[in-house]
């Protein structure tokens, strides 16, 4: 049923649950497993290009390290994980990557905010579920 699975992975507890679910499904269906980490929170209205470049570099390095951790976890389970790190808006970047990569399933973690907080912050999981062109599994 699933041939190509994408896990949104930022190293958080929710993302770790999503990774476990993704690995389990990849094993079950013999699917390719990919992950994406979105480098966001770049400084808005920066005064120097250096500030932005350094922020991109620092965050990319951090997310690459986090993604390598995920690769190790998957490898321990006998699954090869293909990680991707890219800057952008978290919902938009994941949606576009899922669309361009023609993934069959997106697995994301639930952040566990309160209902009120989720409403204020917009609910990343909710937006991903709404906009991603493939089925979305939310791991709680």
């Amino acid at each position: 049923m699933f041939h190509k699975i994408l896990v949104a992975y930022d190293g958080s507890d929710g993302a770790k649950r999503a990774l476990r679910a993704g690995i389990d499904l990849a094993k079950r269906y013999g699917a390719e497993l990919h992950s994406i980490a979105v480098v966001e929170k770049l400084p808005h209205f920066a005064a120097t290009v250096g500030e932005v470049k350094e922020a991109v570099r620092e965050l990319t390095t951090r997310y690459e390290w986090i993604s390598q951790e995920a690769v190790r976890v998957a490898k321990d389970q006998g699954i090869e994980l293909h990680p991707k790190v890219q800057p952008g808006h978290e919902v938009e970047a994941v949606v576009n990557y899922a669309r361009e990569g023609k993934f069959d399933l997106l697995v994301i973690g639930f952040a566990g905010h309160s209902h009120a907080f989720g409403r204020v912050m917009g609910g990343t999981a909710q937006n991903l579920a709404r906009l991603t062109p493939c089925p979305v599994l939310i791991a709680k």
Binding site: L42, P43, V49, V52
Partner: peptide, 14 residues
């Protein structure tokens, strides 16, 4: 024109 502001926007929008 702020190159830094422009650059941050362009990076974020890819």
């Amino acid at each position: 024109t702020s190159l830094a502001v422009v650059y941050a926007v362009l990076v974020e929008t890819g």
